[in-house]
Nucleic acid binder design. Structure first.
Lengths: 212, 212
DNA sequence: CTTTGTGAAGCTCTTCACAGCT
DNA sequence: AGCTGTGAAGAGCTTCACAAAG
């Protein structure tokens, strides 16, 4: 059975927490403590973990190593996924320069831009290609995820080429609404202006909830 | 009555769509068409709009102008909110340089960094201040929103100073979990690594839903 | 005959309560 | 005592179905 999206989101945060704990050599942690650290109710943490399947009969907190492995397997965080950046303006260049923190799981295999000038002047170890090569390169390099940072006008065309090449997940930073008929493509749009508006509207609510 | 968060999010997107329509001189639009444009069910669009209050008895689509005004009022998008950026590394500098697209509603009143060197070398019309001045400046300039882009180590301290000065909404781009006891402070955390993991996990689900 | 408006039904996710294990 | 695991209850949001209006 497939996990509910809210559970997936929380489990990704649990995963990050556990990775930090492992670095600090902690060997186990209780649902209560996970809850406090991440500001989630302990009930919910346990439900989420149980949705993953049986972890074993330990009754004194969850073993960090086992739980990491379980989440990795169930959420498919174990196998590497090829990543690319489309649009090498200021934002795209930041991704090129600072992607180190994700290269273990998401090797950055390609950057694309429509301007030949940019392709020639940007100094990076990531292979760069012209915009028209997207489908071909994505297919050849087996890239399944993309970060979109193009100008608005190119966003939809880029999406189509990415999907045609085999990309199945896109982080859309262009502030444009992307269309894709396909039912197996996931798009996460992030737009600062929209987020500011949401925050503004939330201020009028009495108490604050967490924004996912 | 206060709106549910999912409705707030959708209405912000409707608002953006309506703004575009107004620029194109459209005078009315139906819930069906809004739904198609934003990939929301028409039912839901109407429910959301009705939550705002009575808009009037027109039965041939919603009048664009009236609806914009109604959303603005109810979501408090009308009055300006002072904004600041904390942390002037690569990401913070992008906000400084490209914030134009939001300055109408969110004037950027201050930038903060802990490095005096940065404060002196960055070329911008936005007033820059040292890290320790956060509380004071936020209060003096009546700033209510902040974009956080500091290094991890400073994120929590920055948050405390911002909140003490009067900030009530924070977009957190630091990849750190922020704590705030206060019930009237809203925090939206955006973290590329987490988003990539969520996308990865979603790929294992059969059909794609929209990620909010 | 298309459009909005809305109570009611339905569904998904969260929270509860408590059994069972260590 | 403190912890996990889980069916049952509950809350919140979405979807439905249809009345009412142009």
């Amino acid at each position: 059975m497939s996990l509910p999206i809210p559970s997936i989101k929380r489990l990704c945060r649990v995963y990050e927490l556990l990775s930090e704990l492992r670095r600090a050599n902690r060997s186990s942690i209780s649902s209560t403590e996970i809850g406090q650290s991440l500001q989630i109710k302990a009930h919910t943490v346990r439900k989420d973990i149980n949705l993953l399947g049986k972890i074993g009969p330990s009754r004194s907190g969850y073993p960090v190593d086992k739980l990491i492995k379980l989440i990795q397997e169930r959420l498919q965080l174990c196998e590497k996924k090829g990543l690319c950046v489309v649009g090498l303006g200021p934002v795209g260049q930041i991704v090129l320069r600072y992607y180190d923190f994700l290269k273990d799981s998401y090797p950055l295999l390609a950057g694309f831009d429509q301007s030949i000038n940019r392709l020639e002047t940007i100094n990076t170890t990531v292979p760069l290609y012209p915009f028209h090569a997207i489908t071909e390169v994505v297919q050849a390099e087996d890239i399944s995820l993309a970060i979109l940072t193009t100008v608005r006008e190119l966003a939809q065309k880029a999406t189509e080429r990415l999907v045609r090449g085999g990309v199945r997940g896109i982080i859309n930073l262009t502030g444009t609404l992307l269309h894709s008929n396909r039912q197996d493509v996931w798009i996460k749009s992030i737009d600062l202006r929209e987020e500011l508006r949401i925050l503004t509207a939330c201020l009028t609510k009495g108490r604050s909830g967490r924004l996912e």
